[in-house]
Amino acid sequence: MLRRSFLQQVRCAHSTVTENSRPYWKKNPHLDTIIRVDHAGELGADRIYAGQMAVLGNTPEGPTIQHMWEQEKKHRAKFEALINEYRVRPTALTPIWNVAGFVLGAGTALLGKEAAMACTVAVETVIVDHYNDQLRTLMEDPNIDKDILETITKFRNEEQEHHDTGIDHGAEQAPFYKALTEVIKTGCKAAIAISKKV
């Protein structure tokens, strides 16, 4: 409660929240949380694919992963632009997500290509759900930001494609598929919950 009121004060004191400039925090109080957590998520996804490429780069799966990685890089760049445009505070845990993402990607890739694909499937499932939740939140607002809505919808569809690609490439044949995906999903959900706040 105290923390919340403090954040409120920070926003009120912030000079960009004047009448004419850009009253975006008044427009939608969830917007800064959304941009922060999405940036953290795309950063993590980018690092996961980097880890997978480090291990599986020269295998037949290489081009597929490379393609998905390129898309994630674009997502990350877009959210970095949004952070600057809306002057959102980036998450303080970027160094941790940086390392954790790479370790997760490289670690699952070392278990074999099926495990790497299972990791992709688990992560993308959580992210698609998460984007859908955000879209619902944004839709509730009568004067929504069209640009952000379209961006998130587009990214949601691409993440869904990655999920399907993972299934097509035999994710379900991975060793301990159920346990592996459940653990990764829980980890991703925890990371999302933390990145919203910190």
Partner: peptide, 8 residues
């Protein structure tokens, strides 16, 4: 325009 820990 930093978006990482340098921001802090």
């Amino acid at each position: 325009r930093s978006v990482d820990f340098n921001w802090y």
